[in-house]
Computed example of a mutant assay.
Amino acid sequence: MTEATTDGLTVEQANAMRGELAERIGIELTEVSTERVAGRMPVVGNRQPFDLLHGGATAALAETLGSFHAQVAAGQTGTAVGIELSCSHHRAARDGYVYGVSTPLQVGRTVASFEIVVSNEDRQRVCTARLTCIIRQTVKPT
């Protein structure tokens, strides 16, 4: 995909910045904008011993999408740091992919909160997560 992000990056460039854990567990960003950040993750390779998607992997997907969304909100002069993640797991996933979409609940000058909905291939909700981040300006805007 070559869709541009709000910072002028392509989705490929955003994926290159997604981090080691996201890369290791197969998270792929598919859309990045101020309105939403979306991605997917394979279930196989991220299952717990009972062949179900591991809740921690789902939380990692949610935090990756929400954190990237917070960084987009912080812009080039700021940095975002997660301070709280809450996940409610609704149903199991056994194979295929799960898809996550982060949408802003509130984006302020110093705090931003996002809802991340993770669904299976049948569009059934697997998990609902909420991530809160602090936004710090690292460079004074000119």
Rank of each mutant, 00 (worst) to 15 (best):
N120R: 04
Q106A: 14
T30N: 02
E115V: 11
V32F: 01
R40C: 09
S119K: 12
T5G: 15
G66Q: 00
P49S: 02
A59K: 02
G39T: 03
Q48S: 08
P104D: 06
H69F: 12
T77G: 06
F50V: 12
A4C: 08
E35C: 02
D51P: 02
I27K: 00
L9N: 11
R36L: 05
V37N: 06
R47W: 08
E3D: 13
T77Q: 08
F114D: 05
R36M: 06
V11R: 01
V118M: 04
V117C: 01
D122C: 04
L131Q: 08
C127R: 01
Q106D: 13
G19H: 05
V107F: 07
A92Y: 09
A4Y: 12
A16I: 06
V101T: 15
A4V: 11
T30L: 07
R94F: 15
L52W: 12
N15L: 05
I116T: 12
C127W: 07
A93V: 14
T5W: 09
V37A: 08
L9V: 01
M1K: 10
R125K: 14
T142S: 12
E20Y: 02
R91A: 14
G100S: 05
A80S: 10
K140C: 03
E3H: 11
H89E: 09
S113T: 15
T64S: 14
Q106P: 01
R109S: 12
A70K: 00
R123N: 15
L105A: 07
G39Y: 00
G19R: 05
Y99D: 02
A80N: 03
V126N: 02
T132Q: 04
A14Y: 01
D7R: 11
R40W: 01
E121W: 07
K140A: 13
A38Y: 00
A92G: 07
L131A: 04
C133Y: 02
E121D: 15
T5N: 12
G82Y: 07
A92F: 12
N15Q: 11
A80P: 01
V101C: 11
A112Q: 03
F50R: 10
V43I: 08
V117I: 13
V44S: 10
A59W: 09
Q106F: 13
V126E: 04
D7F: 10
G82P: 02
G96V: 10
A62Y: 08
G56I: 09
Y97R: 07
V37D: 04
S102W: 00
A59L: 08
E23Y: 06
E115H: 11
Q106E: 13
I25Q: 03
G100I: 01
V118L: 06
P49R: 02
R47T: 15
M1F: 09
N15G: 11
V37W: 00
Q137L: 10
M1G: 15
